[in-house]
Computed example of a mutant assay.
Amino acid sequence: MKDMPEKKLSAIEPFTDILIVDDTPANLLLLVKMLTDRGCKPRSFLSGELALQAARAEPPDLILLDVNMPEMSGYEVCEQLKADERLKNIPVIFISAMSETIDKIKAFAAGGVDYVTKPFQLEEVEARVRTHLELRRLQIQLEKQNRQLKDNYDHLGKLEELQDRLTHMLVHDMSLPLNGITGYLEKLEMDPGKKLTGDQLETLRNARANGLVLLGMINSLLDLPVVCNRGRCRVNK
């Protein structure tokens, strides 16, 4: 391991839960100390199986994962993580002595987000951890905003449906008595038994005509979508 100059430590984010998986105790101790000094809450495991059990019991924020381990390789561990609905979005950073391109390709194919070669520098590990924690935080924030947008859209749909029902009820409640009034006026106009003067007959005709115009305006509300925003409504023609 390369000796690094002393550097002032800065917290990543208090109590960030990071799972470290490596079958070499010295590597675990080094990474645990570095992350603890930076305010994290690291959990270390010597085998992939134990790490999987711990992740399923309490999903971490990020995982540092060795590749070459007995019984279960880091690739297999990562594939199982990505197959689990609760764990698939946890960032996995591989840390391995294998530096060939094919090894890195396998790591990314298994679902890793980054790859650090051994012997590693603590500053590099810290920088990559910070980067992927921030990316994960932004991803969670975006998912939350998308859910909120969907909820708002669904709520808007329900409001529009309610508005449509209320419009139909209003049109029905207004047109029903108006139909009765215009019908009665027509009956008066056509009744030969009623002795009406010319002015009275003209008044009846005007009243009935105006009633029919008003009835048409009321019924046309069903064909005009109303858009409301912050208590103000406009009709889209």
Rank of each mutant, 00 (worst) to 15 (best):
E143G: 02
L201T: 02
L204R: 14
T36W: 15
Y184D: 08
T131V: 05
G211S: 08
K144G: 06
R208C: 05
L178A: 09
Q80D: 04
D223R: 15
S10T: 04
L214K: 13
G211W: 03
D17M: 04
C78I: 11
I181G: 02
D23R: 13
E49C: 01
Q141G: 03
N152A: 14
D23K: 13
L214H: 12
M34F: 03
L52M: 12
A57H: 07
K104T: 02
Y184K: 15
Y153I: 04
I105G: 01
E161G: 02
V116R: 09
I20S: 11
R208A: 07
K104C: 06
K2Y: 11
L65A: 06
A54K: 06
N27S: 12
K7D: 12
V77R: 00
D151Y: 05
H155W: 00
K158V: 04
I63M: 09
A109C: 01
R136I: 00
K158E: 09
N27L: 08
K187V: 00
P5I: 10
L81A: 04
G193D: 15
S44Y: 00
L212A: 05
I218R: 14
K2L: 11
T117K: 00
I102S: 15
K82C: 14
L29I: 13
S220W: 01
V213I: 11
T167I: 08
L156Y: 10
Q139W: 00
Q141P: 03
I102N: 11
V213H: 12
K194I: 09
K150L: 10
R165C: 04
C78Y: 11
E126N: 08
G216I: 10
L215T: 09
V125D: 15
R86I: 05
